[in-house]
């Protein structure tokens, strides 16, 4: 039993990071209805950009964070300005497929720049095992969760309490109406892409430091898909719930099903659950129900 609880706790902890990836999808989807298929590659790039400053350039941690934030913000901004904005007025499917193309572009540039080899962060988070009664969990997972939740908190503050956040929520509801109140929808789209890129940076660094830093980080980033489809594409709260569910399921799957099928099941379980959720709740658990008053 205590093993089960430990698995669940570890799943919850790593689920916090998946929630961040989910949030990066939701923030763009909410405002512009574009589903960003390149989110996994943003996560990978986040990890590698941070690694470049921290390890390759050997900068102190605060400077690395600063530069990584700037670089990722620029990548987010350029994506919107060069790829997404010019597609305004085109069918949504075309824009979504464009993000799929962007995903391959980012993968390609990544292997050209950093090569296919694995990199490692110096230990950023305290490692070791913590025990609480009979439950044991890794200290770095716990710090991951804490940092992820802080990032989530900062995002929620921006989204709920600031003028820019209000404009984002307004834009999410009605583009034409937002423009009629003087909100520049283009600026808001840029802001959401920057925000999403920064969330991916945090997720990439966290995932890269608990696992290792390699091209596979892009696939781990893809776990954002079941997260948002489980929680609902438009729901911020759904991200946390979805992230935790995915984290727990993959941990349990790895522990109990892997011995039966011979490994790798943790990669599959979240997507199987995603399929089941889509069959019974197509809008996810917390998907937006439109208010219709006639």
């Amino acid at each position: 039993m205590s093993e089960f609880i430990s698995l669940v706790v570890n799943g919850i902890l790593i689920g916090g990071v998946y929630a961040l990836v989910g949030l990066a999808i939701v923030v763009i989807y909410k405002s512009s209805s574009v589903f960003n298929f390149a989110v996994g590659d943003f996560v990978m790039w986040g990890g590698f950009v941070m690694w470049t400053f921290l390890v390759a350039f050997d900068l102190p941690i605060w400077a690395s964070i600063l530069f990584a934030v700037v670089v990722m913000a620029i990548i987010g901004l350029l994506t919107n300005r060069l790829l997404i904005s010019p597609m305004a007025g085109q069918p949504l499917l075309a824009v979504v497929l464009l993000t799929l193309g962007l995903s391959y572009l980012l993968k390609g540039v990544h292997s050209a720049a950093w090569g296919p080899t694995w990199k490692a962060f110096p230990p950023l988070l305290p490692s070791g095992k913590l025990t609480l009664g009979s439950i044991s969990f890794s200290a770095d997972y716990m710090w991951c969760f804490i940092i992820a939740m802080v990032a989530f908190g900062i995002f929620s503050y921006l989204f709920q309490r600031t003028r820019m956040g209000l404009a984002m929520r307004a834009t999410a509801e009605d583009h034409q109406l937002a423009r009629s109140t003087g909100i520049s929808v283009k600026t808001i789209f840029s802001a959401t892409w920057i925000l999403a890129a920064l969330l991916c940076l945090v997720a990439g660094v966290l995932l890269g430091s608990v696992n290792n830093l390699g091209p596979q980080l892009a696939d781990i980033g893809l776990k954002g898909f079941p997260v948002v489809l489980f929680g609902g594409l438009e729901s911020v709260v759904g991200c946390i719930v979805g992230g935790i569910v995915v984290g727990v399921l993959e941990n349990l799957g790895a522990a109990y099903l892997n011995p039966l099928v011979g490994g790798g099941i943790e990669e599959v379980v979240p997507f199987v659950v995603m399929l089941l959720v889509l069959m019974f709740k197509p809008y996810g658990l917390f998907g937006l129900k439109r208010i219709e008053r006639l």
Binding site: R163, L166, A167, R169, A170, E173, L177, A178, L288, R290
Partner: peptide, 14 residues
């Protein structure tokens, strides 16, 4: 036409 999921005051602030 209003931002239906925002509160009345948030609509005004927008």
């Amino acid at each position: 036409r209003q931002f239906g999921h925002l509160s009345v005051e948030e609509n005004l602030r927008a």
